[in-house]
Simulated scan of single mutants.
Amino acid sequence: MYQIKTVVTWTGALALALASSIALAQAVPAGAWKGAAQVGGKPVRIDVAFQGDAADVRFGSPYDCRIGGKYAGKQQDAAIYAFGVSVAGGQPCNNLSATGRMAMTSSADRKLHLTIDEKTRDGVRHWQADLEPAAP
């Protein structure tokens, strides 16, 4: 009896882990993506590299900074990434890490739509960007 219960428990745990892995794979893209957001009327280049459940996000001029994010789950149709501490660049990315999140949805035309929250003196500014796969 003990052996059967153990096998059932391990089988259930394995099935749950497999289902979680499949859900993560469907929500998290792989590889390098590029695009731009309009911030304060000016374009800001955004490059994102996804590997596993991590995202390395680089912002072009005038931000010129880099910040890492980790997959934090889904909210409605969006994959949510929680930002960590700015890796390089100081205050511009510190503003982004203070708000702590990036939401991402994918579209049928193989683009990713990002919404990034930036903390400002007046509250939170929402960046919108469409990314496409970077050339290999």
Results as ranks from 00 to 15, higher is better:
residue 125 R to K: 15
residue 79 A to T: 13
residue 23 A to P: 10
residue 102 M to S: 07
residue 93 C to Q: 03
residue 86 S to W: 04
residue 117 D to R: 05
residue 76 Q to P: 00
residue 57 V to I: 11
residue 51 Q to T: 14
residue 96 L to E: 06
residue 96 L to Y: 04
residue 29 P to I: 10
residue 89 G to N: 02
residue 68 G to C: 04
residue 11 T to V: 10
residue 58 R to P: 01
residue 118 E to Q: 15
residue 23 A to R: 08
residue 127 W to Y: 15
residue 6 T to N: 11
residue 77 D to W: 04
residue 130 D to I: 00
residue 55 A to N: 06
residue 20 S to F: 07
residue 73 G to P: 01
residue 60 G to F: 02
residue 90 G to R: 09
residue 67 I to F: 04
residue 82 A to W: 04
residue 86 S to E: 15
residue 116 I to F: 01
residue 43 P to V: 08
residue 70 K to R: 13
residue 39 V to K: 02
residue 120 T to C: 07
residue 26 Q to W: 14
residue 26 Q to N: 15
residue 67 I to A: 02
residue 124 V to M: 11
residue 80 I to G: 05
residue 27 A to V: 12
residue 134 A to T: 12
residue 101 R to K: 14
residue 96 L to W: 02
residue 74 K to R: 13
residue 19 A to K: 02
residue 15 A to K: 01
residue 127 W to M: 14
residue 39 V to P: 03
residue 71 Y to H: 10
residue 11 T to P: 09
residue 94 N to I: 03
residue 61 S to N: 09
residue 109 D to W: 08
residue 94 N to M: 12
residue 36 A to C: 05
residue 48 V to N: 06
residue 100 G to D: 04
residue 103 A to Y: 01
residue 69 G to H: 08
residue 57 V to C: 06
residue 84 G to K: 10
residue 2 Y to T: 15
residue 96 L to M: 09
residue 71 Y to E: 10
residue 3 Q to I: 00
residue 111 K to V: 03
residue 5 K to Y: 13
residue 86 S to H: 06
residue 10 W to Q: 11
residue 131 L to T: 06
residue 94 N to Q: 14
residue 18 L to E: 07
residue 87 V to H: 06
residue 2 Y to F: 03
residue 130 D to F: 08
residue 20 S to K: 11
residue 67 I to V: 14
residue 11 T to W: 13
residue 133 P to D: 09
residue 93 C to R: 05
residue 99 T to K: 08
residue 73 G to A: 09
residue 67 I to P: 06
residue 1 M to A: 14
residue 46 I to W: 02
residue 50 F to M: 06
residue 80 I to K: 13
residue 30 A to C: 09
residue 121 R to V: 02
residue 127 W to K: 14
residue 16 L to E: 05
residue 99 T to F: 10
residue 114 L to E: 06
residue 37 A to F: 00
residue 63 Y to H: 03
residue 4 I to N: 09
residue 126 H to F: 13
residue 79 A to S: 14
residue 29 P to S: 12
residue 62 P to K: 00
residue 65 C to D: 01
residue 96 L to S: 02
residue 79 A to Q: 05
residue 128 Q to W: 14
residue 84 G to P: 05
residue 106 S to I: 03
residue 129 A to C: 05
residue 52 G to H: 02
residue 85 V to Y: 00
residue 8 V to I: 14
residue 97 S to P: 04
residue 48 V to A: 15
residue 125 R to M: 12
residue 73 G to S: 09
residue 68 G to A: 12
residue 4 I to T: 10
residue 5 K to N: 07
residue 110 R to A: 12
residue 45 R to I: 01
residue 121 R to H: 09
